[in-house]
């Protein structure tokens, strides 16, 4: 039971980074749309968003990759010890 609450808390914390990254992407796209609407050098905004958005997603991706990688292994160990 205790292990399960910890696991849920961990999943929640990892989803926070995704909320953060998605919020940043939405923010940047919003600014991009404003600059297109106002014809306020949209080229610069497009250039920046093309670089920034993938960077944030890759960062969140790395964190999730480690999280999943570590937990798979832990489950295996618990299973084998139960058997």
């Amino acid at each position: 039971m205790h292990a399960k609450t910890t696991y849920i808390a961990q999943v929640l914390s990892i989803s926070l980074i995704w909320i953060f990254v998605i919020a940043i992407a939405i923010w940047i796209i919003n600014l991009l749309l404003i600059s297109i609407e106002l014809k306020d050098v949209p080229g610069a905004s497009i250039g920046i968003s093309i670089i920034v958005i993938p960077v944030f997603f890759v960062l969140a991706g790395i964190l999730t990759y480690v999280f999943i990688g570590l937990h798979k292994e832990e489950k295996k160990i618990i299973k084998s010890s139960q058997e």
Binding site: T6, S13, Y65, V66, G69, L70, H71, K72, E73, E74
Partner: peptide, 20 residues
Amino acid sequence: NFLSWGWQGTAHQVKVLNRA
């Protein structure tokens, strides 16, 4: 316990971590 993400130090875990 919360922060350690179930680290047991197995070969696979080390590999995942080093790659990241």
